[in-house]
Design a protein around this nucleic acid. Sequence first.
DNA 1: TTTTCTTTGATTTTCGAAATTTTGGGCGTA
DNA 2: TACGCCCAAAATTTCGAAAATCAAAGAAAA
Lengths: 229, 229
Amino acid sequence: MAAQDADIFDDMRHRLITGEFGYGTKLRAEKLRQDYNCSASTVREVLFRLSTVGLVDFQEQRGFRSPYQSVERQHELTHMRILLETEGACLSIRLGGVEWESRLTAAHHKLSHIETRVRSSGDLIPLLGLWSRAEQEFHETLIDACGSGLLKRTHVVIYEQFRQQLVSAETNYGYFPENIREHQAILDAALQRNEDLMRVCVNDHLARNLTRPLPRKSYPDAFGKSSAI
Amino acid sequence: MAAQDADIFDDMRHRLITGEFGYGTKLRAEKLRQDYNCSASTVREVLFRLSTVGLVDFQEQRGFRSPYQSVERQHELTHMRILLETEGACLSIRLGGVEWESRLTAAHHKLSHIETRVRSSGDLIPLLGLWSRAEQEFHETLIDACGSGLLKRTHVVIYEQFRQQLVSAETNYGYFPENIREHQAILDAALQRNEDLMRVCVNDHLARNLTRPLPRKSYPDAFGKSSAI
DNA sequence: TTTTCTTTGATTTTCGAAATTTTGGGCGTA
DNA sequence: TACGCCCAAAATTTCGAAAATCAAAGAAAA
């Protein structure tokens, strides 16, 4: 029975990302110990490792919780995704070769196929898991040739927290036609190797998750102070 | 005897950041257990938490190590710092008020004071710890008004790993005059609320840690393919 | 000599219980 | 009723040892 710890870790991560636990729910060690038939320390260890990647909140002497959901958090995660994905995608354009292009095209094809099925059936729910993974694959491939493992790891961490925050499939489904168009636009920008266009596309695609706009750029006025805000 | 765990965590973090353990050194649980007079599980837990913030590498079944040093790693950390600090600083310019300006000025003053002392004594070593902390304080204040806790937390994580990688105080000292000038330039850009200038200043300040330039922007040529590389 | 297998010692992982700390309720007092 | 205090239950943290796994050295085979 190898790597029991790793199995529990993966399973817990899946349960957390799919939102099985409510937001802010306390993760009781005893309960999980029974779920996995292991000791309390093992559970504790796994939860620590999950807090490593932001999927679990840890507070000294008061245990572990599934993170709270808030507009702030969603906002910050989106902002970070925009920052990392635009940078990663532009670097990929600079550094990636035909091999990267082909992998991105493949990922888009798979995603596109699922999106078409969803649109024709009119129901996202049964394909939600499939679609979710395909979208993640597409976005990860987008930045895959950026040349920085650190950037990619950081992005995964943010992406999974982002995914965890999305509750209702319905909300998401409302934007499905836009989604399809935007993914296509991103692919096109990549194949055209147009960085400025890429920035715009990624921004447009992600900014939909913002309930209020990101702060606009300010320009110094006569006094050298900000004129915005 | 409250919060023993937290104390061990802080102490270990300090030891790691100051480079007490060599790069890639195995962190033996037994040794640390004796250092802190605690049990193996406590050590294990602390090491897990330190791997949370990238100060320790963890590999299943083969324990914990102080991270290896490599040009790649230094490069990636620098790149990430540039990305996060330029974004954070520009957002602070947009969102921060006079209160932020004054805190940044204060942090700069403290740092500047130490730097002057270093330059007049001609020896960085005795003030290294002090200077190190003052520089961190300055850089953290720079992005402090950015409005995103996530961005700030991510920055700390990157910054500490970056600090851990810097070995020789000598190498650093070679650039001391530049450092002083650059910190001043960053402060000026902040007070002028000039975002474009800020980007340039932060870039110049950090890019010195790169042994080779970051990939330059590519422009689509007639075939829509990259012309750089 | 080189390769592969096996044994042994060291390290990591897991366990269940004891010690510590927090949480929540009940009680008395203002 | 509101407030503070104390106690009991529940949860978290720490412990030391047992179980599982890995790594190095030596023996056997090619």
